[in-house]
Design a protein around this nucleic acid. Sequence first.
DNA 1: AACGTATGCCAACAAGTGTTGACAGTCCAG
DNA 2: CTGGACTGTCAACACTTGTTGGCATACGTT
Lengths: 193, 193
Amino acid sequence: MTGTTENQQPARRSDATRASILTAARERFAADGYEKATIRAIARDAKIDPSMVMRYYGNKAGLFAEAVAVDPGLPGLSVEPGDTVGRTLVRHFLTLWEGNEGFTALMRVGATDPAAAERMQFVLRDQLIPLARRLGPDPEQAPARAALCASTVLGLALTRYVLRFPESVALDPEEIVDWLGPTIQRYLTAPTP
Amino acid sequence: MTGTTENQQPARRSDATRASILTAARERFAADGYEKATIRAIARDAKIDPSMVMRYYGNKAGLFAEAVAVDPGLPGLSVEPGDTVGRTLVRHFLTLWEGNEGFTALMRVGATDPAAAERMQFVLRDQLIPLARRLGPDPEQAPARAALCASTVLGLALTRYVLRFPESVALDPEEIVDWLGPTIQRYLTAPTP
DNA sequence: AACGTATGCCAACAAGTGTTGACAGTCCAG
DNA sequence: CTGGACTGTCAACACTTGTTGGCATACGTT
């Protein structure tokens, strides 16, 4: 083994450049969206030539795809007792968003790009709906209940990370968990109102 | 009086063109966002020449400004008994969004344009915060409580009108009121959790 | 009828975009 | 040392964008 992690590839010299491009791309996409994040601007940030971006990532779409290749992974929520799932879920999403700019990028772009919007549905369909089906009183209501949860979480992300409303940015993470946790819990488990 | 409404201006012949441009612009902005909604495409929809857009609205920014000049107006919520404010507010936003494409346009663009994002804060600052200050137990918490309400409403708008998640689109309006009403009510009036 | 104005179209511009190919230096195996 | 592959730069391409000015036509007033 050559590096810190075991790689099959022989660790080429250009890996540093590749990484710096990807980092710059994530920042630009998260800050400006797809159209305004030009390849020239990303290349300038990464301090290389725009043509290198093309060589390493094919085209702009390919670069974006790799920049937002994030894994939401709701880990081990199946073994949750069921009483605190709401709080746990909110806390999970919060730490996820705070640490990875890819989510902000995906969301900003999803507002105008159907492909990115569809990619966001993956979380809803693959993780939230099954969760709602397992915890809720009526499996048939699972899609509706999961949709409400998604709108809650994404609404916070929108006002806090995308639109950056000062009043939303000022909220303390634990304060958010205290308020949104019961909401999610109710959407998932409470009887139909 | 010449038309249905009283106008000070003598009702010029180009008013129909002006209106068709504005309608096409609203649709395009709402569907594609700012960058992808090109003046040429809008002009093609309105069946006129792109140069007419410039003559009547100065430039693209001016056109967008008039296209999203919508008034959220939370009417008479001050006289609401206080017990059903949550439901009333949700219902109000819902009818607002269903009827006017300007909101969708503003939101889609706000995801990448800071100016549009700031325009959206107007609703929060001018209407939601005062409401929270009047109804909530502690005036100092008004910004935080209002921010939570904004994130709730905008989250629904995001998944339903912008990202168009099928599970969110499928929700019945009254079903939404039933679920989101109590949430808003709690954010506004419930004691700190 | 005649004139000034409003309305519309056409062609073109400068700027910026993603993308491509040719060319120079650098590294490493033989 | 020498060859070929890797890494990077430069200049240019084809295209789309917002925007502008000139020119033709229709209108309303006198």
